[in-house]
């Protein structure tokens, strides 16, 4: 017996499911992820100060965060956060809110190594995201190098999502004359 096609995805959005997401949606998702990293940093900073207060209440003073150290920690937190999210669920919180999924060249959830390299690449070169606005296949610089894709996927594992493989995108790109 075939399974009936029932989905909670709105009718007007079903046609987009599985297609590569564009610059606006991905930028909003990235901004949300940046907010999440900022909140994690803030929580870590407050937690560290609270710990220091518990250890030495009398000599406690609020630590002045060093700019370079904070940037380095933020970078590390971002890499760990994005790696864990992409490798475990294929979507970070920003992707979850915006209904996106990160897929590898086989159309599956990225492997841990792929997720780690992609997270580091995104954290180092965030401006690479802008390339998806220029690319005819909506692929960022990181996607082009690592052969990954970000697709609309409002309901994870929804039967209506049929992500195309990287080979199909490459063929389409060649057909359109994109290098």
């Amino acid at each position: 017996m075939t399974r009936p096609e029932l989905s909670s995805v709105p009718v007007e959005a079903r046609a987009f499911q599985g297609h590569a997401a564009g610059l606006v949606t991905r930028s909003i998702a990235a901004a949300l992820d940046a907010v999440v990293v900022g909140l994690l940093m803030l929580a870590g900073y407050l937690g560290l100060n609270g710990l220091l207060f518990l250890v030495d209440p009398r000599g406690f003073t609020v630590r002045d965060p060093h700019l370079l150290l904070s940037l380095a920690v933020a970078w590390g937190v971002a890499v760990v956060y994005l790696t864990a999210c992409w490798a475990l669920t294929g979507r970070s919180y920003g992707c979850h809110v915006m209904g996106l999924s990160v897929l590898d060249h086989r159309g599956r959830r990225p492997h841990l190594v792929t997720a780690l390299v992609r997270a580091a690449f995104c954290a180092f070169v965030p401006i690479g995201l802008l390339w998806c606005g220029v690319s005819r296949t909506n692929r960022s610089l990181q996607d082009l190098v690592l052969r990954t894709r970000v697709v609309y996927d409002w309901i994870p594992h929804d039967p209506e999502v049929h992500p195309r493989s990287s080979q199909e995108d490459d063929a389409e790109s060649r057909h359109r004359g994109e290098s």
């Binding site: 909670s8 709105p10 007007e12 959005a13 987009f16 997401a21 564009g22 610059l23 606006v24 949606t25 909003i28 979850h96 809110v97 915006m98 209904g99 606005g133 909506n138 609309y152 409002w154």
Partner: peptide
Amino acid sequence: SVASSTVRGVRMQSVSGDEAVA
């Protein structure tokens, strides 16, 4: 929570924005 009408509206708007940029 992410399937609320607000989030759905934001998603649809962003899809329209993607198309406009493209």
